[in-house]
């Protein structure tokens, strides 16, 4: 099944939590832990949105963002940036590169869910996948 949201995050604990809350919000999710994997995955499966960490092995978040925006096929793919650095400069850079949203760690779970909802609409199967995960 085609996932709704691709989570790109290298910290296992955070990845787990993101997966849980988005799943719980009703979205089908997929996970990768580095930039190159993210690129490959997106080309193959075309998720509806991407939650992208900036500090990533192999290819960092900015590079992924840039590459996606340069590609006409993923030109308008909604991308939500996550960062632990929280510097104004990073946010500006991300926005310039065409990020759809920007969230600073640590975040409230609802912020992430709301942001994803705003990008791709209300999930069709609310709360359903939650059970599957568990």
């Amino acid at each position: 099944m085609k996932p709704d949201v691709l989570i790109v995050e290298d910290e296992p604990a955070i990845l787990t939590s993101l997966e849980f809350i988005l799943h719980h919000a009703g979205w089908a999710t997929a996970c990768v832990t580095d930039g190159e994997a993210a690129m490959q995955y997106i080309q193959l499966t075309r998720p509806r949105a991407v939650v992208l960490d900036l500090m990533l092995p192999k290819k960092n978040g900015f590079e992924v963002l840039k590459a996606l925006r340069a590609d006409p096929r993923t030109h308008d793919l909604p991308i939500l940036i996550l960062t632990a650095k929280g510097q104004q400069q990073d946010k500006l850079t991300a926005m310039e590169l065409g990020a759809s949203g920007f969230i600073t760690k640590p975040y409230a779970n609802s912020d992430v869910v709301d942001a994803v909802n705003e990008l791709i609409g209300t999930p069709p199967l609310s709360k359903k996948t939650n059970i599957e995960l568990s």
Partner: peptide, 25 residues
């Protein structure tokens, strides 16, 4: 400082996120 902040934020994010999950679910 920026790096420390990053290093601190990462575990903090996980802690907060899971704490919220535990609180709301």
């Amino acid at each position: 400082l920026s790096q420390v902040s990053h290093e601190v934020r990462t575990p903090m994010t996980a802690i907060r996120s899971f704490a919220e999950i535990l609180l709301t679910n």
